[in-house]
Nucleic acid binder design. Structure first.
Lengths: 166, 166
DNA sequence: TTAATTTGCTTTGAATATTGAAGTATCACC
DNA sequence: GGTGATACTTCAATATTCAAAGCAAATTAA
């Protein structure tokens, strides 16, 4: 502690917030351009990434309840973007799969933000790329993502320091 | 282009998404712990950061319409967490101000995620801190946040691992 | 000054999102 | 079998969100 540059933590937090804000704001425009709501697009994206996830998987990944996933999938099914498929192994489970139309929506989502990022990343020097990856992974680790995933409860009553001490 | 490590862009995107997911999921738990909804907490946070912002400022900052801000502020006013104050300079404007209760809610919001981040950041060596700040600011710049703010049409996007095209 | 326009905010109406609680069906285990 | 846990859905209630319309205040034009 007692670093030479105590304001660096603020600078990093500000940069982080800018990143978060940019991505959040863009997600809405992207969804609108794709013709679905943001939450629905998130479902499509996860279904596209993972292999025919179950409703449970979707709920966990998105951090919402199963009831919410049911409602979202209902909408997507009604629009013909995904289909429900009862699992053969465990017939309680429902696998969500993309239809051809659903794949089209995903493909045509003009992910300008990511494209811009990837282009800018490609223009960096090799060592700069390595540094960026290292830093981002370090931040992710500092946020302790895994333990948060495992224990979403710890939000409450945790040691809190008031404003000035973060 | 044609870097030695073409998969680094994927690594950086994955790390970015982990950061985004962790913060997004945590925001909900934080709001619940504070006894408000996520959107309402965002309003409280912005009101706490900026000095008595107008409804317009809130709408711009949050990326929602003014009508939405009106609805959110209505809820917070009903709960006694903020008050509306007609601006003296321009009586069309309404400044949103925190009440004592609103300040308490903000104070007691157990922002464990940020606390954890700040502690981990403080433990880094000086040069590591500098590198982290540099990297985060570079990412923010690569996302072209400023122009995105100005042109919400091509704004944001959730970072999604699309197959080949980016 | 008066009129027209713009700006900031609210209201209204309608769609979506979200969840807890309750209900149904299936699985795992003994 | 029977018991309990798991996966999902349904239902009821609240939240969020926005477009459109409306209102009041400020700004510009005439």
């Amino acid at each position: 502690m007692t670093q030479k540059h105590p304001d660096r933590v603020d600078e990093s937090l500000i940069a982080l917030r800018r990143i978060l804000r940019a991505t959040e704001l863009y997600a809405r425009d992207l969804a609108q351009a794709a013709g679905v709501t943001p939450a629905q697009l998130r479902v499509l994206q996860i279904v596209g990434e993972k292999k025919d996830p179950t409703a449970k998987t979707l709920a966990t990944q998105m951090g919402v309840s199963q009831a919410t996933v049911t409602a979202l999938v209902d909408k997507l099914v009604a629009r013909g973007l995904v289909t429900r498929l009862t699992s053969a192994q465990d017939r309680r489970q429902t696998n969500i799969t993309l239809t051809t139309e659903g794949e089209d929506v995903l493909e045509e989502a003009p992910d300008a933000l990511q494209q811009r990022y990837v282009r800018a990343f490609a223009d960096l020097a090799d060592w700069e790329q390595a540094q960026l990856v290292s830093s981002l992974e370090r931040v992710a680790a500092m946020l302790n993502v895994d333990s948060l995933d495992a224990a979403p409860v710890l939000a409450t009553g945790e040691l809190r320091m008031s404003k000035k001490s973060y």
